[in-house]
Write a protein that binds this DNA or RNA. Structure first.
Lengths: 139, 139
DNA sequence: TTAGATGCAAAGGGTTTGCAACGTC
DNA sequence: GACGTTGCAAACCCTTTGCATCTAA
């Protein structure tokens, strides 16, 4: 159903059909520098397409995730959060204001290999999240 | 309201009142070598206290967590999972069978310090979760 | 024309909460 | 007796889904 083309091509074209809703949702997530929830995406897209429904937002977020165009975080809290940055990276969550930041820490692939060697697991990837206070919340 | 006494003392005594429900819930989580959900804890405790309610389970899991007697994982999926192991450690989730394993990998505290230095965050702790296939699911 | 995509509303699943009754100190 | 705790059920919140309608190809 969904065919992922080369990273260079517009992956939206690989969907069975185009829709302005999906395009708006994708753009919203990609341009957000926060790590938005579905609700937030919905509120944003609503400014452009006032009668879009939450169900459509959820359906498309799921599709876009399956197509590898966005990623989903579910280790921050019990809310799904989406991210236009598909590259592997780490996160920091401020326990005061709740904001989530991308972290520039280099990703350590060797961790996966070591775990695989020592425990006999097959390890595909890992998620690393830091918790504390951001600059603004320390004063 | 809740006073955490020394790790040696029975922290349950520091609660305003005792209840057999709370004790059973605590024991169930501590003795589980899985990383149980509230629902699972409820099913277990029900064998001992048949008319316990789910609400009581949730209330006590929250209390026990606040008292530092159990910990909560919310980075595995969008379900709260509880753990009698309060020490800092990492996790592996099998994407096939869904089981979650504690990982013996040493905890790297230096990570927190480096992040703090480089980004100006105050870092309290971090969570690291690995994803892949466990031994049983590789065949 | 055909099948995917939408909007709507209802349903689902996990968690919290209000309240009267109960239990502990 | 005071007040923390419980059981129950309703409420809540986030997410999914069924269905008739719409729309891209």
């Amino acid at each position: 159903m969904i065919v992922i083309t080369t990273p260079q091509g517009n992956i939206l074209d690989s969907m069975p059909r185009k829709s302005k809703q999906r395009e708006a949702i994708f753009e919203t997530v990609r341009e957000a520098n926060s790590h938005p929830t579905a609700e937030w995406v919905y509120e944003q897209v609503r400014k452009e397409i006032p009668n879009i429904s939450l169900g459509t937002v959820y359906r498309n977020l799921k599709l876009l995730k399956q197509a590898g165009m966005i990623s989903e975080l579910n280790f921050i809290d019990n809310l799904s959060r989406f991210n236009g940055n598909v590259q592997h990276h780490y996160h920091f969550k401020c326990e005061q204001c709740g904001n989530i930041f991308d972290v520039n820490e280099p990703v350590n692939k060797e961790l996966d290999n070591r775990l695989a060697r020592e425990n006999g697991f097959k390890v595909f990837h890992h998620q690393l999240g830091f918790y504390g206070l951001c600059k603004d919340c320390q004063s």
